[in-house]
């Protein structure tokens, strides 16, 4: 899915058609406001944004979008781009900064890259959400055990720290590995890193 925001009707129409010709689904808007009113779409997407727009400019929107809970990759277009403007946009994470009239391939490449990035981000987010869910399914004791395991403690040390028998710790540990859907200790460590679990140093 590609969103196009440009205040010029004809430019909008042309870009929309170009993107459709290579198989993208496209929605286009005359202003950021119109876009925001329509936006939530649960698909990998990319935003093709004119720099100069009425009310909220493209660059302004780029700054604002985090606070609006939007994290779309942005491809900027401008009638007359100047270098500082494009540097600012790229630093803030834009995919590309195109000066009109641009080569169609440049736009398509940028849009492809943008959608790929969004897809990856969405996959990562989905994976993380799954991990969080699994972590939430652990009992408090199992969560404690997991924190100590990933800190590198032996079962015996964990048993001492938690005041449990070594046998019980082993059971908890097996449950953690099963519920978190991992087969090795390094895997568990990596997952717990992505969860940002506070680990206890021995």
């Amino acid at each position: 899915m590609v969103f196009v925001v440009d205040d010029d009707f004809y430019t909008r129409e042309a870009i929309e058609d170009l993107l459709r010709s290579v198989g993208h689904e496209v929605r286009s808007y005359g202003s950021v406001d119109d876009f925001l009113r329509d936006h939530p779409v649960d698909l990998p997407a990319c935003l093709v944004l004119d720099v100069r727009l009425p009310d909220i400019s493209g660059l302004e929107f780029q700054r604002l979008q985090g606070s609006l809970g939007i994290r779309l990759p942005i491809v900027f277009m401008t009638g007359h781009g100047d270098i500082p403007m494009s540097v600012a946009a790229m630093k803030a994470g834009a995919i590309e900064f195109l000066t009109k009239p641009f080569r169609d391939q440049d736009l398509l490449d940028a849009v492809h890259a943008g959608i790929a990035i969004d897809r990856r981000r969405r996959a990562d987010e989905a994976a993380l959400a799954a991990v969080r869910e699994r972590y939430a399914s652990l009992t408090p004791r199992e969560q404690e055990t997991m924190a100590l395991v990933v800190s590198g403690l032996m079962n015996k040390q964990i048993a001492a720290a938690l005041g449990l028998s070594e046998m019980t710790v082993k059971v908890h540990r097996a449950q953690v590995m099963r519920k978190m859907n991992v087969t090795s200790l390094p895997e568990l460590v990596r997952i717990s890193d992505s969860l940002n679990i506070p680990t206890e140093k021995a």
Partner: peptide, 27 residues
């Protein structure tokens, strides 16, 4: 600068439309 922009605008959509046309035919 304004004139350049005014002319650039239709020029830009012309190029894009022509590219789109080619791509429709290249499908």
């Amino acid at each position: 600068a304004s004139i350049a922009h005014e002319i650039n605008q239709p020029l830009g959509s012309m190029v894009t439309n022509a590219s789109a046309g080619l791509r429709w035919l290249d499908n």
